[in-house]
Amino acid sequence: MDDLPLQKIAISGPTLASLIQRFSSSSGDVDGLLFGHVSQPTPSNLLEDDLPEPSSTRSDSPTLVANVTGFVCSGTVSSFYDSAGRLNEPALRRFVTDRALPGQSLLGWFVGRRRTALRPSLREFNVSSSLSNETLTLTANSQIEDSVKIPPCVFILLSTPLIAQSIHTHDHRAFQFRRSSGAFEPKSMDVVNIGPGFRVHYGAFSPNSPLPWLPCVVRDSSSMEIEEDKRRDGLAARRAALKEQKGLDLYAEGFDVGRLGRLMGSEAANYTSELEGLYEKMLVKLEGLARNVEKSSAKVLEQEQRNMKLRSKFAGFG
């Protein structure tokens, strides 16, 4: 992993928004890790080929772009390092493996601290230096053969203005930690959003989704049982599959796959009422789900408040 200079750091609008949201909803300072990939966009200007020594010009002007596509926020500070800035490797490893997604590797880290100057602090320097020196294989997976590899050297600093303002509420600045010079280099941060200005970026965009791929096979539970028997798979596997199917059937509210099949095609017109019934039940279910979310959110909030109280007590406020 070479200590190559980055041209800029790109982050998608939703990722940045969610990063700011995590920071602004937390009660104190936060830190976390940044994931993504490094790309080398094809230069649109092909005049370079005519130059006698294209290699020299390439080495002078950096063309690498670090694309931040995801992050994990710890919700607190010193989550994967100690007060002197040394890495806590088990914690770091846990964070990284939690986010093991295809096409994403550890790019760096971020800190959100309210009402502070927008320049790296003593500890941030030391953590960045430790992180970019990290020789362990921390990358989520090694499938991405073709992409350029750089050490996790990206650092994004989030802050809020020293004096509270109603319009200007957040600041952010991106840096690359250069191992060779032992210093932070401020880098421009491109917020990738939809619009004509970003068409170029989307041209080279390879989408990746954190949702797992679900194999979809149409079959009903009875036929599945027979098939399973025939295959003579392990008993445990069969039980698990049955359990899953039962769960699915519960959600289908009696509309098994076979019955659902009739909802399609020429027969569909006759089953309008059934369809409406299913739709209504789905709505009820959604409402129930929303209520569950609301209740669990309230519980989470309650627990957070309890944690706060315990912390205050520990700090001597009690």
Partner: peptide, 15 residues
């Protein structure tokens, strides 16, 4: 820069 949420953590310094 201390952290009131975690006052047991060492302070950080911005020069």
């Amino acid at each position: 820069v201390y952290n009131a949420q975690c006052p047991w953590v060492a302070p950080d310094v911005i020069f």
